[in-house]
Amino acid sequence: MLATAVNEIVSTKINPNVVPHLHIWEWHIPLYLFLGGLAGGLLVITSIMIVLKRKFGIGPRDQGDGCPCLAVRIGSVLSPTLLGIGMLFLFLDLAHPLYVWAFYTTIQPTSPMSAGSWILIAFFPLAILQAMLVNKRQLRGFNIEPINKVIDWTENHMTIVALVNAHIGVGIGIYTGILLSFFSARPLWSSSILGMLFLVSGISSAAALMLLLAPEDEKPVYSMIDANAIWIELMTVGLFVLGGLTGSANTHGAMMHLITGDINLAGMSYMFWFWGIFIASGLVVPLLLEFLEAAGVHIRFPNVAPVMVLFGGLILRFLIVFAGQTYHTFM
């Protein structure tokens, strides 16, 4: 091919959402990825809570009858609920939603979409069992025989269910990133650390959400989980950015497009969204706030930090999905 430096390229191509750059995925997909990550994170945290009980001093307090505290109970219910909502967005994104059944006529191990569609299905049974188990006191109140039986079964296999759920949660969290990172044609996404990034972001977001939901006396636990997850996320983002910058021209360009890009997203440039909203207000500031709080400084609005984390997590998905599409295709 001809030299690339000062070339003038004129194309007759007209296809909408392909030129001038890919625009196949709008708000549905980032929202789905965020909710999926959150659901995964919630499942990981709640199931680990269930397994750990009060061991190591970080498990949930038993509220009688083996039921854990409120945050774990709500989190366990929210996890499959949020995933269901996310899948609804995914469904709405399909150009031909009525053919959605076609996903379940085949298993295509090489297709992350196919794998994902099966993981999503696999997620629900045990996640729902767990949600029932932790809410058994309320459910048993209805005195419906089949439900009671299911709860009995789950209670007997509580550890194994929770352990499997922890893994499924990790799987979902990683999957939301891997879904993108398998697309080698999109240089920004083509990084396997994206799976890790979305997983820890999902966990930090989930911890933030549980921090919001938890009663006052439980908050320190989630604050600690959140702070640790943010630490790891910061490092993962660092690795993601470094990996991009030190990569080939394709990945370097794509990373620069993300972190210094002047493309306008809802009135602000990528650069501003990335550094200002995601890194600063979504990670660094909440981390500082939680650190200060743990150190005993009185924070006037303790809910601000977790809300910022959640918003940052949402923005991360939007940024990655959009910037990955607006940067040119693999060259």
Partner: peptide, 8 residues
């Protein structure tokens, strides 16, 4: 289904 994975 129009999932657009192929396009990406």
């Amino acid at each position: 289904t129009g999932c657009k994975a192929c396009m990406a």
